[in-house]
Write a protein that binds this DNA or RNA. Structure first.
Lengths: 154, 154
DNA sequence: GTTGAAAAGGGTCCCGT
DNA sequence: ACGGGACCCTTTTCAAC
């Protein structure tokens, strides 16, 4: 169930497919020196184990109309409201990630907005009413980089 | 070049493929009531426009050996060192995201580590030597949710 | 756990509209 | 920009090792 059960072939496959979800498995097979059926089964196994949680296309947020991105640290009024706040946050389309964190904030969320004014609207009209004592906004004005974790089961 | 050039069919296609990069385009075609060739051309157009930046498989970080996740806010000693620090950060395998932010931190990074001890090692041995005045660690002890931005060009 | 082969289906390209 | 069709490659399954 854990990564201890994964061998080098699994690692090689994951490395080849993780940044290109539409790579033909036969191409992976050729790279790995095994049959296409083997890759098919291995990938199926990785899905069944939950190692592979799914696949997605990566879209450019700006090009679909979201020019502003921010992390917002949330301070809850009452700690007992954690779960209900999270539930409400999940309903807000612009809130794309949410973490329970240690440190100064109770929750940390990632928010996209059409522009700065739209972000302000989201914070004031959507977030504040959920029962927050305070919020702290970290605007991301540049995505310096983004990459994948290393994969190595050797 | 922007989302203003995208129509409802583009939106429908993106909605169908964004959470499943391996969906057959012919299935998308049937859902949209157009030919496979049309989907093929549209997707190609979206890639050329940069709306689609790529595709990926989503892996479970825990299941490939990374049990700890944290955001770390960085305070630089000197503002002039931004770019060189970012360059060095990018070389650290465990640092998967990096943002220039407004607010209290100069930079905000997302870090995965094998465990808490490993995270401490990364912060002390890898991050601190880069010329940081201070760091502030927000451990993520639960990933409450993670979803996609809404797509709507109607 | 892996293989090769067969059947079914999808991806890609070209031409016509 | 889209549709139809042809061709080739890929996916998926299964018996056999």
């Amino acid at each position: 169930m854990a990564y201890h059960d994964l061998d080098e072939l699994d690692g090689k496959i994951l490395k080849l497919i993780v940044n290109n979800a539409r790579i033909p498995f036969l191409e992976v097979a050729r790279e790995c020196g095994v049959s296409g059926a083997a890759i098919h089964q291995r990938v199926q196994k990785l899905v069944n184990l939950g190692v592979i949680k799914g696949s997605e296309f990566i879209l450019d947020a700006e090009k679909i109309g979201y020019e502003t991105c921010a992390y917002v640290g949330l301070f809850l009024v009452s700690p007992s409201s954690f779960d209900s706040v999270v539930k409400e946050l999940e309903k807000i389309p612009e809130v794309v990630e949410c973490y329970y964190t240690t440190g100064q904030y109770d929750l940390l969320i990632k928010v996209f907005a059409k522009n700065n004014k739209d972000l302000l609207r989201i914070i004031h009209s959507q977030l504040q009413p959920l029962g927050l004592a305070r919020t702290e906004t970290l605007m991301c004005f540049k995505d310096a980089f983004r990459k994948k974790l290393p994969i190595d089961f050797s």
